[in-house]
Nucleic acid binder design. Structure first.
Lengths: 191, 191
DNA sequence: ATTATCTATAGATCTATAGATAATGC
DNA sequence: ATTATCTATAGATCTATAGATAATGC
């Protein structure tokens, strides 16, 4: 048993990180507290010393899953060339992302469940979507800010929708066709 | 108690129709058998004379929710002018559809849960998506079939993604901006 | 006689809490 | 003394089944 305050904070983050992954994989109600705690190397009884309720964990986990994109972009840029629109598209619309929702975009993994969540969680989603729209708009050339915002909204919608469709179908060829077509279409129309 | 075979068939359809609506509203696990049966004017005990399991109902209800679009298009065309690409976009990307998932597109309401469902349900989704892509492609002008298919995939992705984003955000202005921007963008680029 | 539906409930979860145990930290 | 975690369990679901009841249909 680890009991120090520092260890408790680490444990807390471990639970949140595991939940952020598993919720994206199984849905917000696809995994219970007992199993989550077990995966974090703990037992169910300790849960409520960390969170007031299951919903409190959901909110924290969703919040933690958000910002993934921005962090990835920042990390990539700090060690190399600046992010480009084409690279952003490629990083999103690929089979690895499709097959690993647990580490990917929380919006495409959870949008429908978020839309049924409480206002607090949806406010977090609004913030995330707003941030990502600005991130995309910043990668688009030209000085017309309104045009860039429109294109960013169109791009984000197409990315999220294409990923949803590609994950929903059981036909691998159709799934790949969706990813590839939308990817090429977006990159072509950005030129 | 109604007991005839004809009434049983009607009752069966009533349960499926109610489930198709409620699953789109609450998610595939958001409503239980007892409440569904109650809404259909029945009690929980009769359920298993209609379905082998809850999953069997889910598959039937999802299947029933599919094809909504095609039926609407057929109905609209039978009593008026042929459907146009612009009208299809308007019928999809509006606030009424956003606020009433229970009677709307089953893909945008359930894509994420479907992607976690069994192969049979995902095969149904593949068929639905394939059908809808053909429906959209058929509304696009020009003789280049490959270009029409690409544009149909892009359109369908943008529609589903825009609806997901518009439903996820709590900010009404942002939600409307997403619907309007994608709607205008698609219609403009189809000319 | 068969069967569509009903009431009642068994058995399996799942969230949340109670009380014990073993560390930290004053 | 405080508290982070543990084991155990209460209470609330939810799916599925058992057996009774009241219609249909031969």
């Amino acid at each position: 048993m680890g009991h120090s305050k520092a260890e408790k904070a680490k444990t807390h983050q471990r639970i949140v990180a595991k939940a952020a992954k598993r919720f994206r994989e199984e849905g917000l109600e696809g995994i219970g507290i007992a199993e989550l705690m077990k995966e974090a190397g703990l037992t169910v009884g300790g849960f409520y010393k960390h969170f007031n309720s299951r919903d409190a964990l959901v909110a924290e986990a969703v919040s933690s899953a958000f910002g993934t994109w921005k962090r990835q972009v920042d990390a990539a840029e700090s060690g190399g060339p600046p992010m480009s629109y084409a690279k952003l598209i490629d990083d999103y619309l690929n089979e690895a992302h499709r097959d690993n929702p647990g580490t990917g975009c929380a919006i495409s993994a959870l949008a429908e469940e978020i839309s049924r969540s409480d206002k607090r969680t949806r406010a977090l989603a609004s913030e995330e979507i707003r941030n990502n729209l600005q991130l995309i708009a910043g990668l688009l050339p030209g000085k017309d800010k309104r045009a860039a915002r429109s294109k960013a909204i169109m791009t984000y919608s197409a990315l999220v929708g294409a990923m949803s469709l590609a994950r929903a179908v059981s036909d691998e060829a159709l799934s790949r066709e969706i990813l590839k077509t939308v990817s090429e279409f977006l990159k072509k129309s950005a030129r």
